[in-house]
């Protein structure tokens, strides 16, 4: 700490303010008793939180987002773990090309992906279904799960697995007792990032969602096109609160620094 000069401290302060101020403002506005977007000046009110209950679409959209995020990140992790292990363990021909392919969804703008998926799923007769959304989300979140799992797998000392093999462990036992526990921090962080990515996506999802499969960001986006009232801020405040709980749990289980840095457990 003492190594930071006053300039550096000022910069850090500004930066943190810049990051946090909008979130703080949204949370404050959520408590306004007024019918329009304003900072609460004459008392706090929970009326906009109660108002969420009058719009079941928001609650439904929240569950769609949660389910979509959980499923797509789970599938992404289930595919990412064997892919990462194979790429780090074996001399796979075209390893570089494969890695680039796995990471390529990162490089395509989500608008483009949205249009492409819309055309594709409509042609298949799946337009607007949850299945189509899920498939699209798996593609988009996979690089996040893959990247962090790969980092954990390549940071794993091969001697550890060899030691386990020499002691008689083979096949699935080796994976369950040694490999997986050692890359778990990377896998969990990959899963968390994939989940956040799915939960957060608007640009692509807005092309694919139909009534009934709207995610929370899509629902909010559609809502503020027609209404300017503090309902979206109270919804946002709820999402922020849930995120905080999620992060605290993650921190308790694995340590947040480890999860966000995607390091192995050495």
């Amino acid at each position: 700490m003492s190594r930071n000069g006053p300039l550096a401290l000022a910069f850090h302060g500004l930066f943190v303010t810049f990051m946090l101020a909008p979130i703080v403002v949204v949370c404050l506005v959520a408590f306004t008793p007024e019918g329009f977007l304003s900072l609460p000046t004459n008392g706090f009110s929970l009326r906009w939180f109660r108002a969420i209950a009058d719009y079941p679409e928001f609650v439904h959209a929240f569950w769609v987002s949660l389910g979509l995020g959980a499923l797509s990140s789970l599938v992404a992790v289930l595919v990412a773990v064997p892919a990462a292990l194979a790429l780090t363990r074996y001399p796979v021909p075209g390893r570089g090309a494969l890695q680039a392919l796995f990471l390529s969804p990162l490089m395509i703008p989500h608008v483009v992906l949205g249009v492409a998926f819309l055309r594709f799923f409509t042609a298949l007769g799946l337009g607007g279904t949850f299945l189509a959304l899920l498939a699209a989300h798996i593609v988009v979140v996979f690089p996040f799960a893959f990247r962090l799992t790969l980092a954990a797998a390549s940071g794993l000392d091969p001697a550890l697995e060899r030691a386990a093999i020499s002691l008689g462990a083979g096949g699935f036992t080796l994976f369950r007792r040694v490999t997986l526990p050692l890359i778990l921090p990377g896998v969990v962080s990959g899963w968390a990032l994939a989940f956040i990515q799915s939960f957060d996506d608007l640009t692509m999802t807005v092309f694919l969602a139909a009534p009934g499969t709207e995610t929370l960001p899509v629902r909010m986006f559609l809502y503020i096109q027609d209404n300017i009232d503090p309902l979206v801020t109270s919804v946002s405040a709820c999402v922020i609160a849930i995120t905080m709980v999620f992060l605290v749990v993650l921190d308790r289980l694995y340590g947040l620094d480890r999860v966000l840095a995607g390091k192995g457990s050495h």
Binding site: R162, P181, H266
Partner: peptide, 19 residues
């Protein structure tokens, strides 16, 4: 297979299971 050879190995990095 190396897991069936029944040899004891001590590695340079010790390779103890950290968990």
């Amino acid at each position: 297979h190396p897991s069936k050879r029944g040899l004891g190995i001590v590695f340079q990095s010790y390779a103890l299971f950290p968990h």
